[in-house]
């Protein structure tokens, strides 16, 4: 058990250590207000990272999530303000279009056998380009009060989006850890050929993970627009790298076949704790990025080392 989850254990210790040091450094860090605020800030990346865990565990990758987020934000503004749709309908359509973007990724990867890295590099450019072309650098403001609640309001003392995130986490844990679909994802990541011979629904599972990835990115876009009360076509730029960093830091193998939702959540917590804690300690955000890079490489070095020793 300990062996199987050694990466998660290392991360949990790391997270606890980071939180302890930061709590000693700054009295503000462990206050409920700061913790809730941190939850608010990490929701968008976290939602996308949950699904990215599935994508990477299946041996794939999705670089286009940041662009889908930008496109979704732009479409939300366009549907609502330019085309005069009721906002709830616009939100549903945006979720639908995000899923459609993901489905298209799945289509070119499954149907044409394109490597996911390159297929989604292409759609990264394509979706961002559509966002830029549709928005023509204009932003949409003046969102109604109820809409702002999604990103800025609280329910029972916890930010609304954190409730959404917790629900998504629960669903992700169950599906990846305890369902046939989750086992199929791991099987594809370990050996796609073997999974096919075993009669597993390989194509359907791939379609599902990429579609879910697009859906998560568009949900994150709605929350983000609600939080910052504006839409811009460059929203979500670089999101893919933050998300992949969290997932990989969380112990999901970039080659597929291995990874857990708990690991990803721990990865997200470590990153968020470092970012907020260091900024409270007066270290600028850029120093934090360096540390995240170092932590990422060192964690992987440690876990590859541990693995090769376990094998020997």
């Amino acid at each position: 058990m300990i062996n199987r989850h050694s990466h998660e254990a290392v991360l949990a210790v790391l997270a606890a250590l980071a939180i302890a040091v930061l709590a000693l450094q700054s009295a503000e860090f462990l206050t409920p207000a700061n913790l809730m605020n941190q939850g608010r800030l990490m929701t968008e990346v976290a939602l996308v990272a949950l699904v990215m865990t599935f994508v990477i565990a299946s041996g794939g990758i999705d670089l286009s999530v940041g662009s889908i987020m930008g496109l979704s934000a732009v479409l939300l503004g366009t549907f609502w303000q330019k085309m005069g749709m009721p906002l709830p309908l616009a939100m549903v359509l945006v979720l639908f279009s995000g899923a459609l973007c993901g489905l298209f990724n799945g289509f070119i990867i499954v149907r044409f056998g394109m490597p996911p890295l390159i297929a989604t590099l292409g759609t990264l450019a394509l979706y961002r380009g559509l966002a830029e072309g549709i928005s023509q650098a204009r932003s949409v403001r003046g969102w109604p009060e109820w809409f702002a609640q999604i990103g800025q309001g609280s329910f029972a003392g916890v930010p609304v989006q954190v409730w959404i995130l917790l629900a998504a986490m629960a669903v992700a844990v169950v599906i990846l850890g305890y369902s046939r679909w989750g086992r199929t994802v791991y099987a594809i990541g370990s050996s796609e050929t073997a999974a096919r011979f075993a009669g597993l629904p390989v194509d359907a599972a791939k379609y599902a993970v990429y579609t879910a990835s697009g859906l998560a990115a568009s949900l994150a876009a709605i929350i983000f627009v609600s939080r910052v009360s504006t839409t811009r076509s460059d929203m979500g730029t670089g999101l893919e790298l933050d998300v992949i960093t969290a997932v990989v830091l969380g112990g999901t193998s970039i080659f597929g076949g291995r990874g857990t939702i708990i690991g990803t959540v721990l990865g997200l917590v470590v990153i968020q704790a470092l970012e907020s804690g260091l900024s409270l300690a007066g270290i600028k955000g850029d120093g934090t990025i360096v540390l995240i890079g170092v932590v990422l490489i060192l964690t992987l070095l440690a876990s590859t080392f541990a693995e090769s020793r376990a094998r020997a």
């Binding site: 990989v248 850029d286 990025i289 360096v290 890079g293 490489i297």
Partner: peptide, 11 residues
């Protein structure tokens, strides 16, 4: 990816 973070942040 890690190098990118280190170089960007370091710069």
């Amino acid at each position: 990816l890690g190098m990118m973070a280190i170089l960007q942040g370091g710069l």
